[in-house]
Design a protein around this nucleic acid. Structure first.
Length: 291
DNA sequence: GCGTCCAGGTCTACC
DNA sequence: GGTAGACCTGGACGC
């Protein structure tokens, strides 16, 4: 079964699926050769594998079995952020040499998951560890707790599935270390209805207040909250981690360390879009000459 | 193969 | 509000 999801003229499939490291974390599967992105979706019948690829004027999704077309299309729009307009950012970026590439390439849509819960769990997995450990933790969560389809492909577990496991499981099986208690608490809160991360997508709160709400989740600090806010479509935080700082030092500060305040000042001109500005600035080299 | 050191964000206790 | 130390893992390094 195949479905077609139309996209706007300001959308680049190539630049969206490789916009940040999420493509490297299951249940995403990037095929560099074909330029396609796989994902294990879920509908009322359970997991279903979908292969997304650019097609004329849209995205075509090849599914491993007949599935709910509206549910899969909604998820694809969410994952690829097809309903989000970056025109205000492009308007700002067009005047800046280091960001003009993003305007030309239609870059800047940051790949995300179909649920805020999945993005939140993955974000916690990125804190205080190497990327290989992040990959290992997410892989273990999906393989050991995610529901599987008939071919053995596994979807990301929902909060109820994650709440079944205890801290020892996260420590010994997921290798989450001190984060183990955070996952138990988060999963139980969401499964029990005491926390609703999906509501953050439509929250009326100012970003600063929403950030405070997100930081109430154990294991989420400034970096993690601002990273998640970017995935919610709010770019006024820089989400500085060691990689972004090092990139800034190399590109704009002659390789020397500097306070975060200097980085913030550098991108201050982009106002509410500064988080996206620094990300595009630092990832320009990812796409080579084929921008 | 083993031991040691280090990087990576967040939490808690303390000032 | 700011700071120090603990948390835990995988990888790098030296032996």
């Amino acid at each position: 079964m195949k479905i077609f999801v139309p996209t706007s003229r300001s959308f680049s499939f190539r630049h969206t699926i490789r916009s940040h490291g999420w493509y490297d974390l299951p249940p995403f599967v990037l095929d560099d050769t074909s330029g396609t992105l796989g994902y294990v979706f879920s509908d009322e019948k359970g997991p279903v594998f979908g292969q997304m690829e650019a097609a004329g004027g849209g995205v075509q999704v090849g599914l491993s079995r007949p599935a709910s077309e509206s549910k899969i299309a909604d998820d694809v729009r969410r994952i690829l952020r097809l309903d989000e307009s970056l025109s205000a950012f492009y308007h700002l970026a067009a005047d800046h040499q280091t960001l003009y590439w993003a305007v030309q390439a239609k870059a800047g849509r940051l790949l995300r998951s179909p649920t805020v819960f999945e993005d939140l769990v993955k974000t916690i997995c990125t804190t205080n560890c190497s990327w290989s450990l992040t990959r290992s933790m997410v892989k273990n969560i999906v393989e050991k707790l995610g529901p599987s389809d008939l071919t053995g492909r596994r979807a990301f577990p929902d909060a109820a599935a994650m709440a079944v496991a205890d801290a020892d499981f996260y420590r010994n099986e997921v290798r989450a270390g001190y984060r183990s208690h955070y996952f138990v608490e988060l999963a139980e809160s969401v499964a029990g209805g005491r926390l609703d991360p999906e509501s953050w997508l439509v929250s009326d709160l100012p970003t600063a207040d929403l950030k405070k709400e997100i930081k109430k989740v154990k294991g989420v600090g400034d970096y993690a909250a601002e990273n998640l806010l970017k995935l919610l479509g709010r770019y006024d935080g820089l989400a500085l981690d060691s990689w972004l700082r090092a990139g800034f030092y190399a590109k704009h500060n002659r390789g020397k360390k500097c306070p975060d305040t200097k980085i913030a000042k550098h991108y201050g001109r982009f106002g509410d879009w500064k988080g996206l500005a620094i990300w595009c600035d630092m990832t320009e080299g990812w796409f080579g000459s084929g921008k």
